[in-house]
Amino acid sequence: MNEKEFGQKLRPWLQRSADQVGELQATRLRASRLKAMENWREPVSLLGLVQVSGGTVQALRYTYLQRALLVLPVAALLAALALQSVTSDGDFGDLDAALLTQELPPDAYLDQDFRSWLHKSTRG
């Protein structure tokens, strides 16, 4: 007996039971059915080997996406810090060399007036 024949045989029994269901139970059953229909997704073939419910695949993907979004900024921060720790001496070398060889002497950058002008220019 295949799935269709089984369904047809079962149908009158279910119909008879359905007639005896009260209004409240019928409403609950309808709501559950609608919810189940909403959640149903076409089965998806994984690597052509296994058929998996589309809902399961979607839930898995969603979870991974959520996790990735959560972890990504922290991972980026960690990577930036690690990179900084590796290259900080080199960076200071470039920066200090630039600072020492520009037109202004280093004490200009400690001058309160200069810093205040810079602050105003940055805001303006």
Binding site: F92, L95, L99, Q102, P106, D107, Y109, L110, L118, T122
Partner: peptide, 9 residues
């Protein structure tokens, strides 16, 4: 501080 001001400039 000098580095920070220089970078700001």
């Amino acid at each position: 501080e000098a580095r920070e001001t220089f970078q700001g400039l």
